[in-house]
Design a protein around this nucleic acid. Structure first.
Lengths: 328, 328
DNA sequence: GTGAAAGCGCTAACAT
DNA sequence: ATGTTAGCGCTTTCAC
C-alpha cells in the first residue's frame, strides 16, 4: 500500500480511500491511484484491514461438522457456504469425527482466528467449553444435534417423533419382532431415534427385546454384520428399523435375499433407494434446509439479535416405497 | 493481552513469551502469568499474531471446488482437511458451481485473507488470473481437472484412457451402437472422457454417431430425459457410456426396464451400484486420494519446494459388475 | 530474565 | 480533497 501511495504520489490514506470507494477523492487522483494499483498488482490485506476496522469483524464464520466427507454433512455445509457467500462471508470448515477433543481443538482454532460466528454439529461430548466463546460475543448455532451444557440456537429435525412413526408403521403392518440398528447411543440424534423406537413399542404394548437392538454401529460394514447376526437368531426379527443411511445400506447388505421377506424402514433418504428391490421405505430429512436455517439463525445473531435461544424443529417426511410395507 | 500483563504485573512481552512457551521466563513469573490468563479467560488473537510474525504466514489454506455438496468433492475436501489438520492448518472452502466469475471472486477473497496456499478444482473458464497469486508467492495446486493458461502442480486421474477402456469393454461385448451421455464439454474431465469414448470407437472402426451423443447434462433428471430420448429412437443404442455418477443414475432412471437388455458402464463408483439389477459396471476413482495427493503437493510447495510443476496422474479401477457385460 | 520501542498493513478520528 | 496521528493485538529487535 505504501508502494502504491509512493507510485501515485499520494498518502496511504488516499489509497485506502480509493480501495474503499470513498466519494471524497478527486477523480484524477483516484485515477492515478487506480493506475498505480494496477501497475503494481496491489491487493489489499483483508486481515490487517479487519484488525483495525470498526467492530473487529473478520467476515468469516466457522463450520464444525462430524464428517465433511459424509454426504449429509456436505449438503449441510454447502447450504451454509451459499448463505455465507451471499453475505460476503468466508467459511472455515472442520470435521470432528465425533471426537470431543478434536471438536475443542477446531473450535478453539477458529475462535483464535476471530470468526464472527460458529455453526457446530456437537459431538457426544460436553459443549460447556463453548460458553467461553459465547461470553466473548461469538454467536453459536447448533445444527443437527443439540449441545450439552449450553443454551444456544439449535436446528434439528423431529428425530424422536419421526422414529416413533416409522416403527409404528412397522407395527401397523403386523410386526411384533422389530429390530433396532443404530450408531452410538451417545450421539444425540441416535438417542432420540432410539427413544422413538421404544415409544412405538410401548404404545403397541410390545416388549423391548435387548437381543433385537444393536448400538454402536459406526459403518456400513458394522451394520451388515449386525444384521446378519440378527438373522442368525433362533427367532429372527420380521422387521428392522435402521437409524441412519449408512446403517440402512448395511442392513440391506446383511439381509441379502431375506430383504424380500423382512420389512425395513430407514432413517435418512439416499440416492437409488427407489431403485432397489424392494424399494426402500425411509424417513427423509433435508440437510440443506438444516444448514440454510442454521445460517439464517447465525446471521440474525451477527446482525445483533440477542433474544432468547431458539430451537427450530424441522419436519421429516415419511416415504413409503415398499420395504416398509412388507407384512409380518 | 495488556490486561493479562497488568494483572500479572509484567509487560506484554512476558505474556507473549509465556503464550509461546519461551524458555527464558522465570518459573514463578510464568505461573503468575498463567494464572492471570486463566482468570481473565484470555485467548490469543491469531490474526494479529500472524500479521507481525516472521514470514507472514496465516496457517490457512483455501480449497475451491465445483460443489461442496457433491459427495465426490466432499470426500476430496475431507482428505484435504485432514492433511491440513495434521499440519495445524485451517481450511477455507468455497464452491464455484463451475462459474468462472464466482471462481474468481472466491479465489480473490481467499488471497485477500492471505492464505498460504490454494487447492483449486478449476472451472471451465480461464485460470490465467491465478498467475497473479502465484507470482505473489501463493502456491496453487489443481485437483481433479487441469487449469487453462496456468502451469501448476496438478492431480487428476487418467480420464481419457479410462473412458477409452470402458467403451472398448462395451465394444468387446459386441456393441456397435454405443451412446455417450455427458455433462458440459467445456469441463476438462468431460472433454477427456468424451475423447476416450471417441478413441475407443475409432479403434474399433465404428462411426461417431451424433444422434447417440448427448452433452450438457447437468443433473440426474437431465440424464434420465436424454436416456429416454435415445431409447425412443428408431434405432436405439444397445449400450451406454455415462460419464459421471449422477449421469449414470439418470441413465438408470431413463432406461427403466430396458436396463436389462441395454449395457451400461458409468464413470465414478457410487453406493449401492452393486445392489441394483443388474449391478452397475463402473470406472472407479478415489476422490479422497486425489485430495490427499493435492494436499501433499501443496504442502511441499509451502515447505519451499520450487521445482518445476508436477502432474500426478492417479489410476482408475474398472469394476465389472454385470450391467457392462450385457451382450449386444 | 525482562522490558521498551518499533512496526506488521491497514483504518478511525481528527486535522488541514 | 487530502494528510497526519494514533492504534488494532501481537511479535521482533535490541537494550538492560
Amino acid at each position: 500500500m505504501r508502494d502504491v501511495a509512493a507510485a501515485a504520489g499520494v498518502s496511504v490514506m488516499t489509497v485506502s480511500r480509493v480501495m474503499n470507494g470513498a466519494a471524497s477523492v478527486a477523480r484524477d487522483t483516484a485515477a492515478r491511484v487506480e493506475q498505480a494499483i494496477a501497475d503494481l498488482g496491489y491487493r489489499r490485506n483483508d486481515i490487517a484491514r479487519h484488525l483495525r476496522q470498526k467492530g473487529q469483524i473478520s467476515r468469516t464464520i466457522g463450520l464444525v461438522v462430524d464428517d465433511l466427507g459424509n454426504p449429509f454433512y456436505s449438503a449441510l455445509a454447502r447450504a451454509v457456504e451459499d448463505a455465507a457467500y451471499r453475505r460476503g462471508y468466508l467459511v472455515l470448515v472442520g470435521s470432528t469425527n465425533d471426537d470431543p477433543y478434536r471438536e475443542r481443538e477446531v473450535v478453539t482454532a477458529f475462535s483464535a482466528r476471530q470468526v464472527d460466528g460458529l455453526i457446530v454439529v456437537p459431538t457426544s461430548g460436553n459443549q460447556a467449553f463453548l460458553s467461553a466463546q459465547l461470553a466473548m460475543g461469538t454467536p453459536i448455532v447448533c445444527a443437527d444435534r443439540t449441545a450439552r451444557g449450553l443454551d444456544v440456537d439449535t436446528v434439528t429435525v423431529d428425530n424422536r417423533d419421526a422414529a416413533m412413526r416409522a416403527v409404528a408403521h412397522l407395527v401397523d403392518h403386523g410386526h411384533r419382532r422389530i429390530a433396532y440398528l443404530g450408531d452410538q447411543r451417545s450421539i444425540w440424534t441416535l438417542k432420540e431415534r432410539y427413544a422413538g423406537y421404544r415409544d412405538a413399542l410401548a404404545a403397541a404394548d410390545l416388549p423391548l427385546d435387548r437381543d433385537l437392538t444393536c448400538h454402536g454401529l459406526r459403518s456400513r460394514a458394522d451394520a451388515a454384520a449386525a444384521m446378519a447376526g440378527l438373522m442368525a437368531l433362533d427367532d429372527p426379527p420380521t422387521a428392522v428399523f435402521a437409524s441412519n443411511d449408512l446403517i440402512t445400506m448395511g442392513a440391506i447388505d446383511g439381509l441379502g435375499d431375506a430383504g424380500r421377506r423382512v420389512a425395513l424402514v430407514g432413517f435418512d433418504d439416499f440416492p437409488l433407494a427407489d431403485k432397489l428391490s424392494p424399494p426402500v421405505t425411509v424417513v427423509s430429512q433435508d440437510p440443506a434446509t438444516i444448514g440454510a436455517t442454521a445460517a439464517q439463525l447465525l446471521f440474525s445473531r451477527i446482525d445483533g439479535n440477542n433474544g432468547p435461544a431458539r430451537w427450530v424443529m424441522l419436519l421429516t417426511r415419511f416415504v413409503a416405497r415398499g420395504s416398509g410395507e412388507i407384512r409380518a
